[in-house]
């Protein structure tokens, strides 16, 4: 068993009167990629928000090195845990360089002096995400794929050892999806960054995740390495989807193919 980067104990959380997460316990392994999957409204994003201190728990707690994140100062948490929300807003008229530089916010003192290490972290984040050439461009002028890389760069500039991403590949073409996920896998390998992400694409989740967590109505239905989680029974239980699961011919990891009503090939005469 590897060390845990984050430990979640008996967590319940929700919005208003609704409870989204119920008595959830989980530990996130250090230096690995954890992919959270589940149907819409199963509590995936809520779990991510609770982990990153954005949502206060009703009961239970989230521990970072033995301290409850919700009682830590926001800045201190932000130096350890980076978060890329599902729909970040790029302020109008901001350059790529300045947006990525904002990742340094939690590291800056009251007077916001820009230090050498800040500049290095930003230059580094731009180069890893191949966005250095875009530095002086306005974020609103970029393509969807470029923009997502810039957001990832901002999260990288934060230089945290834990990175939480809510659907980092949404709205991206498949080539850009793979690009972003490769980038995250590189980060894990090169720096030992712990990555937790919500992913919609189950095959990509199985390919890139070391650990899969399948959620149903605020609870964890299954967890484990992809080959123990992505199977036909789980798909039926979690997604109410009939599907076939087989080993992907390239990596040997599980891969699923949905069986719709038209999958026999002769539904349409």
């Amino acid at each position: 068993m590897t060390d845990a980067a984050l430990v979640i104990e008996d967590l319940s959380a929700g919005y208003g009167d609704g409870v989204v997460l119920r008595d959830l316990s989980l530990s996130i392994p250090k230096g690995q990629i954890t992919a959270i999957i589940g149907a819409n409204a199963s509590g995936k994003s809520t779990l991510l928000r609770a982990m990153s201190r954005l949502l206060a728990p009703r009961t239970g707690r989230v521990l970072l090195d033995g301290h409850a994140v919700h009682s830590m100062a926001p800045r201190r948490v932000a130096r350890r845990i980076g978060l890329l929300p599902q729909t970040p807003v790029a302020p109008e008229g901001i350059t790529v360089l300045d947006l990525v530089s904002r990742g340094r916010h939690p590291h800056q003192g009251a007077f916001g002096r820009w230090r050498r290490e800040d500049e290095e972290a930003v230059a580094d984040a731009l180069s890893i995400t191949a966005t250095s050439d875009l530095a002086d461009r306005f974020v609103e002028d970029l393509s969807g794929g470029q923009r997502q890389r810039v957001w990832v760069a901002m999260a990288l500039a934060q230089r945290t050892d834990i990175l939480l991403l809510d659907e980092p590949t949404t709205f991206l073409d498949i080539n850009h999806q793979v690009e972003v996920l490769d980038l995250l896998a590189d980060l894990k390998d090169a720096r030992g960054t712990t990555i937790v992400m919500v992913l919609h694409d189950l095959n990509l989740a199985a390919r890139y995740g070391d650990l899969l967590i399948a959620m149903v109505t605020g609870r964890i239905a299954r967890r484990g390495p992809p080959r123990d989680v992505l199977d036909e029974e789980m798909l039926e239980q979690v997604f109410r989807l009939r599907a076939r699961v087989m080993a992907d011919p390239v990596t040997g990891k599980p891969m699923m193919i949905p069986l719709g009503r038209h999958s026999q090939g002769h539904a349409i005469p």
Binding site: L54, P85, A90, P91, H105, P106, Q108
Partner: peptide, 17 residues
Amino acid sequence: RDLETMRMGDDTAAGLG
């Protein structure tokens, strides 16, 4: 600076401390 950071949305700003 905090106010500027909040232009990126509450979640992003909170994530940045």
